[in-house]
Design a protein around this nucleic acid. Structure first.
Length: 262
DNA sequence: AACCCGTCCAACCGCCTGACC
DNA sequence: TGGTCAGGCGGTTGGACGGGT
């Protein structure tokens, strides 16, 4: 995921910078993909002023970006605690579980998945879950999923999803799209009552233990995902590792960062 | 080789909320 | 108490990439 983006990003970045320069209106805010230099600058100033006052930070950093844009970039991409790579089966299970409880409260769900952002989870849900719901719908048209779930083929779900719980879908106050509801129904329909009960007794601690164990065994990841997990998405990340970016405390590091990004 | 289509994900948009005055 | 504003959040979009035809 990350690798395929780098080439495009560079190209796009160059284009964006050119656009901005040719725009010639000086104070105009930049939009679009972030350049590595911008990343470095942002990291540096966040380190300096903390993850707050984003408008102020955007101004003093000299970045022609809005505070919002800076915050998003930091939260979704530059934050050191971020976990890269694909959503694992266990994480997927957890997302399903939490979504059944909270609906589309992505930030809330994200808080239960350390290293994952709301944006990431949101994207995952939209692509994977909706696709599943869509497939399931196709397989079961015209009749909708019944409460007994008898019309549903378990093959329409991945093995990990079949273990997911659909606890209280009705408790969510968030407006749900048809596909989302279908997912909930799917999950509910494919979860036997006994398994359901078992899942209810499955504590979050246990779940995280499982995730930790899976990561340790490195069995949940395919080669590409594993590579993505261990290799940073961009030279900036490489730099961050090489130069211990997260322990920056003098200008020398900043210079190194700038050099490395050029 | 060229095109199409699905997937993925970074980034933006607009609304909401809470803090501050 | 009402107004303002920064930050947070969920929804949406745009574009690259890869696989299939």
């Amino acid at each position: 995921m990350v690798g395929k983006k780098t080439a495009m990003a560079k190209e796009e970045m160059k284009k964006n910078i050119d656009d901005e320069v040719s725009g010639g209106s000086g104070g105009r805010m930049r939009k679009g993909p972030w350049t590595e230099q911008e990343d470095v600058q942002l990291v540096w100033f966040v380190r300096l002023f903390g993850e707050r006052r984003w408008d102020f930070l955007a101004k003093v950093s000299g970045l022609k970006r809005t505070g919002k844009s800076c915050r998003l970039r930091w939260v979704n991409y530059l934050h050191p605690g971020l976990k890269r790579g694909r959503i694992t089966a266990d994480e997927e299970r957890l997302i399903l579980h939490l979504h059944s409880q909270w609906g589309s409260r992505w930030s809330r769900i994200a808080r239960s998945l350390p290293g994952r952002t709301d944006n990431e989870i949101k994207n995952f849900w939209r692509t994977h879950m909706r696709k599943m719901a869509h497939d399931a719908k196709k397989k079961n048209t015209p009749p909708p999923v019944t409460s007994s779930g008898s019309s549903l083929s378990s093959s329409s779900l991945t093995s990990s999803c079949s273990a997911a719980t659909a606890t209280t879908a009705t408790t969510t106050t968030t407006t749900r799209a048809g596909d989302d509801e279908a997912v909930d129904q799917l999950v509910a329909a494919t979860t036997p009552a006994s398994q359901h009960q078992q899942q209810m007794d499955y504590t979050m601690d246990q779940l995280w233990n499982d995730i930790a164990a899976a990561e340790e065994a490195d069995t949940s990841y395919d080669a590409a995902a594993a590579a993505a997990m261990t290799s940073p998405p961009s030279p900036v990340w490489e730099f961050c590792t090489d130069y211990s970016l997260w322990r920056i405390d003098d200008e020398e590091y900043y210079k190194k960062m700038l050099d490395a990004s050029q």
